[in-house]
Design a protein around this nucleic acid. Structure first.
Lengths: 156, 156
DNA sequence: GCCGAGGTTGAGAATCATTCCTATACTGGC
DNA sequence: GCCAGTATAGGAATGATTCTCAACCTCGGC
């Protein structure tokens, strides 16, 4: 579930416009990638996407499309589970959110904070980054735990 | 800089005791790894550590030591820049902290929040994870931005 | 409708981090 | 000092990702 409830079609249009503005083509492969990403309910790895797009987009093209879309600000990478990069729609498409990451299976679930929590967080973030001399571009709260399925298995 | 100012020697002793309790040997290679990690001021990758330990600990042993120390709760992995896992001392050795990550060069700097910010954050985290059915094990705030060096280069 | 420039694709090779395998070396308890 | 259980070195194997290069499309100009 995306935290914004834009439909696949709406997102497709937003992406199309955004790319046109920047003079980047929205080719068939890229459209397929966006669609596949919209189908999951959290960041997805290249392997997972390749699976969905089997026979449509070869792996090398898939990686290239991901790189282009990331460079154009459409996708955001999430470096979660060991060794694999998962991609999701950038925040301006999916809404600002944070991640619950399962330490067992690597599953990532998007969550939103309530407005007051988010405001507070942003204050803290900006103070901290300023004091370290960093020019701030974003933040994510990564919450680690066991997802319900893994917690259950651990008991059995 | 570690946020706790335990000396290398103190940490070494804490690690030694912790491992003994769990019946894990504190071999020369593992000691070297701990020392090398204590020398950096943020999480370090296997390659960086291998560089420091050139000729002392071969790569395969280094990885094995990292795995053992992680499993024993001495080290914590940080999956930062694309494709590389960086290790740092676990929080009970280095203090609870968050990360400022440079989006250009991948450098990671540890930061602590002030107590009220941290308290607030913990409340938020526990509410969110409970509502998703996750059993909470930890959290980190990842703040992204440009470090002073990279920001400066961008200007030049 | 045709052309050329430049971006894009496909397929496989190459690279990089990490893990696995196996023979050898060490350690602690007896 | 010997044994069983661990740990190590070093190289091969794996898996994700990136690169290379020839063939292919696409867009704007004619």
């Amino acid at each position: 579930m995306q935290t914004n409830t834009a439909t696949t079609g709406q997102i497709d249009q937003l992406v199309r416009d955004h790319l046109r503005e920047r003079g980047v083509r929205y080719t068939r492969a890229r459209q397929a990638v966006i669609k596949a990403i919209g189908m999951g309910d959290g960041p997805q790895s290249a392997a997972e996407l390749h699976n969905r797009l089997k026979g449509i987009v070869p792996l090398s093209s898939l990686y290239r499309s991901l790189a282009v879309l990331e460079a154009s600000g459409i996708l955001a990478p999430h470096l979660g589970t060991r060794g694999v990069t998962r991609y999701e729609l950038a925040e301006w498409l999916s809404g600002h959110h944070h991640h619950l990451v399962c330490i067992e299976c690597g599953k990532v679930v998007d969550v939103e904070l309530d407005p007051s929590g988010e405001d507070h967080l942003e204050d803290v973030v900006s103070i901290v980054s300023r004091s370290a001399g960093f020019s701030l571009t974003g933040h994510t709260l990564e919450i680690e735990g066991q997802c319900p399925e893994c917690a259950h298995e651990a008991v059995t």
